[in-house]
């Protein structure tokens, strides 16, 4: 459940919208200002998306029940074979549903 009041929530959404739009024009704006990014800064920038997204997966795996752990692991194996998210979601979701309805009871 969300902890925010309605107006607060709408402000956060609009803030996120402005911030997202800034990323969409940032390359265009930066291109005229910065010519060369130092290699270490570039390495750090390159690592940002994977680093952030990992923090949304790993604790869910750690804190989830065994059936959630199994589902995430099954999706990981699927992902090694199929690049797109849909097969991973299909396998992971089926795994968790089978566990919850046929094994846990």
């Amino acid at each position: 459940m969300s902890d925010f009041t309605n107006e607060h929530m709408i402000l956060v959404i609009l803030g996120a919208a402005v911030a997202t739009y800034m990323t969409r024009i940032a390359g265009y704006l930066l291109l005229s200002v910065v010519s060369d990014i130092p290699p270490r800064a570039e390495a750090a920038l390159n690592a940002i998306p994977a680093a952030v997204l990992t923090t949304l997966v790993a604790p869910a795996f750690y804190a989830g029940g065994w059936e959630s752990k199994l589902a995430i692991a099954a999706a990981l194996v699927t992902g090694l074979r199929y690049e797109s998210p849909l097969p991973m979601i299909a396998v992971g979701w089926s795994t968790v549903m089978i566990c919850r309805y046929f094994i846990i009871g």
């Binding site: 390495a43 390159n46 690592a47 998306p49 994977a50 680093a51 952030v52 997204l53 990992t54 923090t55 949304l56 997966v57 790993a58 869910a60 795996f61 989830g64 959630s68 589902a71 995430i72 999706a75 990981l76 992902g79 090694l80 690049e83 797109s84 998210p85 991973m88 979601i89 992971g92 979701w93 968790v96």
Partner: peptide, 29 residues
């Protein structure tokens, strides 16, 4: 409840050709 973590996992795996992918993901995890 498992859909979002799996969706995020698929995005993480999409970056796997980036330099130092495995150490970065392991340390973040």
């Amino acid at each position: 409840d498992v859909l979002l973590p799996i969706y995020f996992l698929s995005l993480v795996m999409g970056f796997r050709k980036r330099p130092n992918y495995l150490p970065v993901v392991a340390v973040s995890a």
